[in-house]
């Protein structure tokens, strides 16, 4: 069964059609990249997947059931900015995913884990922090981290919530090319190791083709000024990336590094300049 199914979704703001007739199914373990010209509605589409916006028409289903009308823990997200909490340390940020889903009564009331649940959560959080290469920065606050480190923290934090699908809106758009290449390597590894399903909006075609298993383009079929917003964007292209990226074929994929990768992807992760050699 497909994980996400989008059926005949339209989105209108007042009398402007932003998206029309979106039909899409996404399989588990897919890594879908959404590309398209600026303003065509990529963020709007992602917001609908997140339930931050509601479709004007049509339904979105997750595992066969309509998605909740508000954001819930089954859909994780990383935004371009403001994804992490500035009042919490790296560890505190990642622990939030466990804290906010605590199982004991007191834990649910206070939004915190306690005792044995806490210890297990700290262990999980540390594993994730180490997976994104931030072990040495565990006690730092986000403002003390570089942009790339903040986005890696945001990834770890989102994964701690154990979402069924991870939604990313230009998560690496604000990063330098070099740091972006590093984080691509990390992203691919996380996708493989943690069996994720990812939907990522990006401006960057090479990013789309080097990371995704499937690239989907949104475009307006008609774009005359005289149309006055009567036509929205829809899916115009839908490519499966070749060679097929499956978890089993990982080695093949990793040795086929994207053209912006600075080094073979299976080499140890390179960190931001500030942390070279310190990461565990």
């Amino acid at each position: 069964m497909s994980l996400i199914s989008v059926r005949n979704v339209w989105k209108e703001y007042h009398d402007t059609v932003v998206l029309e007739q979106i039909n899409l199914t996404i399989e588990p373990r897919a890594f879908v990249a959404l590309v398209g010209p600026s303003g065509c509605g990529k963020t709007t589409f992602l917001k609908m997947l997140l339930s931050e916006e509601r479709p004007t028409r049509g339904v979105i289903e997750l595992e066969g059931k309509p998605i909740s009308p508000e954001p819930t823990a089954d859909r994780g997200v990383v935004f371009q900015r403001y994804s992490v909490f500035s009042h919490l340390t790296v560890l505190g940020n990642v622990l939030m995913g466990a804290d906010l889903q605590a199982k004991t009564g007191a834990g649910r009331f206070f939004g915190r884990t306690f005792g044995r649940e806490r210890a297990a959560a700290v262990e999980d959080a540390r594993a994730l922090i180490s997976a994104v290469g931030l072990s040495h920065a565990e006690q730092k606050y986000p403002t003390q981290l570089s942009g790339g480190m903040q986005q890696r923290l945001a990834l770890a934090q989102a994964l701690m919530g154990k979402p069924k699908v991870l939604l990313l809106d230009e998560p690496f758009g604000a990063l330098d090319a070099g740091i972006r290449a590093d984080i691509h390597v990390l992203m691919r590894k996380l996708w493989n190791d943690r069996a994720l399903t990812v939907v990522m909006v990006t401006h960057d075609l090479s990013e789309a083709f080097s990371l995704a298993t499937r690239v989907i383009a949104f475009e307006r079929r008609r774009n005359e000024p005289t149309d006055g917003g009567r036509y929205g964007a829809t899916i115009t292209k839908d490519y499966d990336v070749w060679p097929k990226r499956t978890p089993a074929a990982l080695d093949a994929i990793l040795s086929l590094s994207g053209r912006d990768d600075p080094q073979p992807a299976h080499a140890t992760r390179r960190d931001d300049p500030a942390e070279t050699g310190v990461a565990s």
Binding site: L50, E52, V77, F79, F85, Q101, G111, A158
Partner: peptide
């Protein structure tokens, strides 16, 4: 408070109270 922060907390499982 940036809307993203609230949405982020919701996607981590928070209730209004938490």
């Amino acid at each position: 408070i940036p809307r993203q922060q609230i949405v982020k907390a919701e996607t981590l499982g928070a209730s209004t109270w938490t």
